[in-house]
Design a protein around this nucleic acid. Structure first.
Lengths: 324, 324
DNA sequence: CTGAAAGCGCTAACAC
DNA sequence: GTGTTAGCGCTTTCAG
């Protein structure tokens, strides 16, 4: 910048002002500076700028697994939204491990990121305190409250009601669930929602029809097989996410169980592949794109000065296809 | 840091050395500093460090679309590999647009990133010059050479041979291709490879059996429909990627064309969903994980001082499933 | 409308 | 084994 300044015969302050437009510069001066910039191929150093201004142009997105299509979609959407504000997105995988989640939050502080968007998996609310102390805005995407931070919260009530309606409409009464791990933050909210709403249909979720595992295809196959070994088999299975549901389909195929004939199958997320499997997967869509939009919005508001925490709800959607 | 120093009764240099371990510090001093750090909840400012040392702890990954499972997998793998070197990954989508690609390279310079890994889509080799001028190492993942930069290049020859073998084994002679866009950087190397190898099987790829489109499901459906309207229909279709192949399956279903009975279908990539569709998709796997590993390796070598460009080949793999 | 200069927080000579 | 200090490249008062 000093080089540009001397080449243009001005001070470095003027170069800075030409770049930022924060104060009026005489057209002739501006032209001189701009041609010097072009001449020298000068590019501002964002690091120095950040150090000086105290604000970074980077935001972190912390998710369990970016290879999971849901999070990939979220990353894409967030990145697209923040772009307009000049923010870049640093994507961080935790592998669903709490220590990793904590380590990445610490990293975010160290990097003085402009903000953090996190989908906690095993994180505890107090783990976010480090961000608060460092004055870094956090946006949490989760079903459960997470203290006094901005929250993007899915509203799955009506979609879950519709799913239950659909499943019970043809006299299915033995509803099973392949849930996520017990020690996830806030438990498994999708399971919780089912438990809460099932009584409206005069059914309950007996303990022997709830199995747990990771959010993986394998885990779905194992869970489904286990459920089919019960004395009284379920006639419908809800899965905590679509990968699990696909695993369940694998197992059903191996066991010769007809879907949806013998067992109706419902997933969660509406991952891109949900409409590719046969039968097509009936599922409850969690709108990754909308989550990204909402998170970006909340973050931008914070950077614009809002201080009171805010919660945005995004509606889940029941998507009826062939599996239920 | 000054605060920590005075709390511990030492100079800020000592605090820095305790943190970096770059020179011996008396145990007692170290202890004092460490407790002061803990007391005050101090965290180094990575921005200031970067400015001072001239090296950033951030690397950019520039891809057409992070929501595409192949790139999501690549991102995941790259991030995992670079983690050990203390590097974070900033993921950037270009939407397959050249101007975006260029803009993001400029951004990478502005941010003084430690390195850039890019999967160019419409980029021209000379667009990388800005990086070179700024002294930022670039690793390109592409089929075509890209000037004097590090390259991760797929080796699809043997996998493509196997695919052709499989398809021609049962007397299929009319091979069609649904290729990517004509203006992509380096054309469509997958199509080129097929063209090169087909003669070995005594067949050619007639012009009327090559259609082009984007790398999307819709585009696959359109392309397949178009191919089926030819006077002499093809009996095998190669698709530039798996999304296209899935679209082709959609169209085949609508048209009542049996796969693989009437038409054999081969994809490229082996995206996660390839094994989910029915029939399961026969495809040529591009190992996203290996690409990430290789790219990380090349980048690390550069940061360790290597100056001569190097190319790493990663082998594609023929995956025979039900569609061909 | 423009310039001089302080200082963001850190690292790395250089000195003791 | 430790301290002093000069910047890294920028933004932003304050002064003209």
């Amino acid at each position: 910048m000093a080089e540009v300044a001397s080449a243009a015969g001005v001070s470095s302050a003027t170069v800075s002002y030409v770049l930022s437009g924060k104060r009026a510069v005489a057209p002739a001066t501006r032209a001189a500076v701009e041609s010097a910039i072009a001449e020298l191929g000068f590019t501002v150093n964002a690091t120095a700028r950040s150090l000086r201004t105290g604000r970074s142009s980077l935001a972190a997105l912390i998710v369990p697994d970016i290879a999971n299509p849901f999070y990939a979609q979220l990353a894409s959407s967030l990145q697209e939204q923040l772009r307009a504000s000049g923010l870049h997105v640093v994507v961080c995988n935790t592998g669903a491990d709490r220590e990793e989640e904590r380590a990445l939050l610490a990293e975010a502080v160290q990097q003085r990121f402009a903000g953090v968007v996190i989908t906690p998996f095993r994180l505890h609310p107090e783990d976010l305190d480090t961000l608060a102390e460092a004055g870094i805005p956090a946006v949490v995407s989760a079903d459960v409250s997470f203290g006094a931070v901005d929250l993007v919260k899915p509203d799955a009530r009506s979609a879950t009601l519709q799913a239950l309606q659909r499943v019970t409409a043809n006299q299915r009464r033995r509803i099973a669930v392949i849930a996520g791990p017990r020690d996830a933050t806030g438990g498994d909210p999708r399971l919780a929602m089912l438990r809460r709403l099932a009584p409206q249909f005069g059914i309950s979720l007996p303990r022997e029809l709830v199995v747990r595992g990771e959010h993986t295809r394998d885990s779905g196959a194992v869970g489904f097989t286990e459920l089919m070994s019960r004395r009284e088999r379920p006639d419908a299975v809800f899965c905590a996410n679509d990968m699990i549901a696909v695993g369940a389909m694998d197992a059903a195929h191996d066991l010769g169980v007809d879907i949806p004939g013998e067992v109706a199958l419902v997933g969660h997320d509406d991952a891109a592949f949900a409409s590719l499997v046969r039968p097509r997967l009936t599922t409850i869509r969690y709108p990754a794109h909308d989550v990204g939009v909402a998170a970006a919005q909340l973050l931008k508001e914070r950077l614009d000065g809002r201080t009171a925490p805010r919660t945005v709800r995004v509606r889940a959607l029941f998507v009826a296809r062939g599996s239920a």
